[in-house]
């Protein structure tokens, strides 16, 4: 735990800088209260709130990502033992990766990386 003291101090210092900027704005800014505006839409008032159900067309990419991403959990510890375990570790990890890359190729054919 001792080791995190520097990082915590840095976090504190950043918070001080951010608060300092806001304080500078409050003391030297033109107006303390923010301007309330309609969302800017090129010169006409918007009809609706923008925060509505947003249909992301790339949602199939998220699923490929989530599955692929699990592999990273193994890969970081793997880097530490490659030299020690030897060729078996490399073969094993790359079997793992090649299977995933095949899945990515399949996903590419299915158009998962496009705004379908």
């Amino acid at each position: 735990m001792e080791s995190y003291s520097g990082a915590l101090a840095l976090l504190l210092a950043v918070v001080v800088v951010v608060l300092g900027l806001y304080a500078a704005h409050l003391s030297a800014g033109l107006a303390r209260t923010p301007l309330t505006s309609l969302p800017y839409n090129g010169g006409v008032a918007p009809k609706e709130y923008a925060v509505s159900r947003f249909h992301a067309r790339w949602y199939s990419m998220t699923m490929v990502f989530l599955a692929f991403d699990i592999e990273m959990l193994f890969m970081y510890p793997w880097t530490l033992v490659v030299a020690q375990v030897g060729a078996a570790a490399v073969v094993e990890m790359f079997v793992f990766l090649v299977v995933l890359v095949l899945a990515v190729v399949y996903a590419w054919r299915e158009g998962a990386f496009r705004w379908a």
Partner: peptide, 13 residues
């Protein structure tokens, strides 16, 4: 940007 007025929009978060 320090001097400039801040902006908010209606019904923002």
């Amino acid at each position: 940007l320090v001097v400039q007025q801040r902006r908010t929009t209606v019904a923002n978060d």
